[in-house]
């Protein structure tokens, strides 16, 4: 695919757990991400959903090399050249930072409280010497204006701002280096509903104007559906399904996706919810279940699920799923909301 901006292949991130002996020997691994592959096209938004502990945040951060991947390839296209990010040295990677950025979840901890807003936004420019002198200020002002920040605010420190404004500062920092790819890691989850809508609009506007490519990680399914063109579902370090948003939401092929969709809160009081019950808890990523990782909680589990690892298959156009029975099961998608319009 010529339009692919980023492709990851068999990405693995394993965290060693030290045993408590004198020599600090390594014995076990937390397999936070265990063989994840997908691609993102230029200018699209790929949503990534999953419960806490599914490894979705680790995927985002290991693409950016904020966490070192254990294995796998991360190929990134810049100016018609392809690079494997996982092979770059730290120093080489620094040169790539201008092309890829992260928008954090917590608008409070992600801004250095000791720097002015101007310095925070300017950091990517100054750290990589992308601009000098007046150009720095010019680009900072431009980025701030795009994020609807009052330019008077640039002299101030983060403690002067509310959560929504801080998140806009974080977005301005992310786009000041004119990146191509931005990872949004739960970027609107900590915000109030009214502010959240504004930030989502802002992200979509910026994408339309500059052609940004987003990896949008969140646990709120409606938010992900709203902004994403395609959505990937993660469970216990692996992808279970990836499809265009509408297909995934209304015609899921994996039992776990079905369970997620049934749990979306229903705003209309007339419509009753029937969430699918999953048994037990999400298993530990240190000793993931054999076979299909979801078999311990799957309502449709069969004997071979316990032993055979399901293949990651494209069963329909652009619809990938890892389930032995993807073709035979009839699963229910999200409820199409009946209109609850005001007035």
């Amino acid at each position: 695919m010529s339009d692919t901006l980023l492709e990851i292949k068999d990405l693995k991130v394993h965290f060693p757990i030290r045993s408590k002996n004198l020599f600090g020997g390594v014995t076990k691994y937390v397999k936070a991400v265990d063989g994840v592959s997908f691609y993102i096209e230029k200018g699209e938004t790929l949503g990534l959903v999953g419960e806490s502990g599914s490894g979705k945040t680790t995927v985002g951060r290991s693409i950016l090399r904020a966490i070192e991947p254990t294995a796998g390839k991360v190929t990134f296209n810049v100016d018609d050249e392809t690079f494997d990010l996982s092979q770059l040295t730290d120093k080489e990677m620094r040169g790539f930072r201008e092309h890829m950025q992260l928008i954090f979840q917590d608008p409070y901890s992600s801004l250095n409280p000791r720097m002015t807003v101007r310095d925070i936004i300017a950091e990517p420019l100054i750290a990589q010497k992308l601009a000098t002198g007046d150009e720095v200020d010019e680009r900072v002002r431009e980025a701030a204006a795009l994020c609807k920040l009052n330019l008077e605010f640039l002299r101030r420190f983060p403690h002067a701002f509310s959560g929504g404004q801080r998140q806009r500062i974080g977005i301005a920092r992310a786009l000041v280096s004119r990146p191509q790819f931005i990872v949004c890691d739960e970027s609107v989850s900590a915000l109030d509903v009214s502010i959240q809508a504004e930030i989502l609009n802002l992200l979509m506007d910026l994408q339309a104007e500059f052609g940004f490519t987003y990896l949008f990680i969140a646990h709120d399914l409606s938010v992900v559906a709203h902004i994403s063109k395609r959505v990937a579902v993660m469970y216990l370090g692996q992808l279970v399904e990836l499809a265009p948003t509408k297909d995934l939401f209304y015609a899921p092929k994996h039992p776990y996706t079905e369970a997620l969709m049934s749990a979306i809160p229903e705003v209309n009081p007339d419509q009753e919810m029937n969430p699918v019950h999953l048994d037990g808890e999400i298993p530990s990523p240190i000793n993931p279940p054999s076979g299909c990782r979801f078999h311990t909680r799957c309502p449709y589990t069969q004997d071979n699920c316990k032993t055979d690892i399901p293949k990651w298959e494209e069963i329909e156009d652009n619809h990938f799923v890892a389930c032995h029975f993807a073709k035979t099961l009839t699963l229910k998608g999200a409820e199409m909301p009946t209109s609850v319009d005001a007035n």
Partner: peptide, 26 residues
């Protein structure tokens, strides 16, 4: 492990800049 130090890292700041500009003032 603070988010803003990770952010500086992702902004492309090298170790000396991270120590001098972000860690020491804090």
């Amino acid at each position: 492990g603070e988010d803003y130090v990770i952010a500086a890292n992702l902004a492309g700041a090298g170790p000396s800049r991270i120590i001098g500009r972000h860690l020491l003032p804090a």
